[in-house]
């Protein structure tokens, strides 16, 4: 069955970055794909919940708690990698 929410990876990355800048870390300026969002304190624990909820809604997937870990959420790039591993993204 084709998942109608599957979208190109680069489009998803752009939307995710825009969401983080607008809603999660509004005072923090520019964010790149490899900006460390966690070690620098850009995103706090509520921010992580906001981001994982947003990804679940946007991609119509359920993220298992064991996948909500530092390794998958450290940067926008790592979130894209995770989403791709879930089959929720196509290559542009």
């Amino acid at each position: 069955m084709e998942n109608e929410t599957v979208r190109p990876a680069d489009e998803f990355a752009t939307q995710l970055t825009a969401f983080i800048v607008a809603d999660v870390a509004p005072n923090e300026g520019e964010i790149n794909g490899d900006t460390d969002l966690l070690l620098t304190g850009l995103v706090d624990s509520l921010g992580v919940v906001m981001i994982s909820d947003w990804i679940e809604n946007e991609l119509s997937i359920v993220i298992d708690p064991v996948d909500v870990v530092l390794e998958n959420f450290q940067t926008v790039d790592s979130m894209v990698t995770y989403a791709r591993s879930r089959g929720a993204l196509t290559e542009s």
Binding site: L38, L39, G41, D44, P65, V68, V69, L70, Q74
Partner: peptide
């Protein structure tokens, strides 16, 4: 660490 604290599954690990 603060970064770990944001991820309950990392904390439990």
């Amino acid at each position: 660490p603060d970064a770990i604290l944001r991820f309950p599954a990392n904390v439990s690990e």
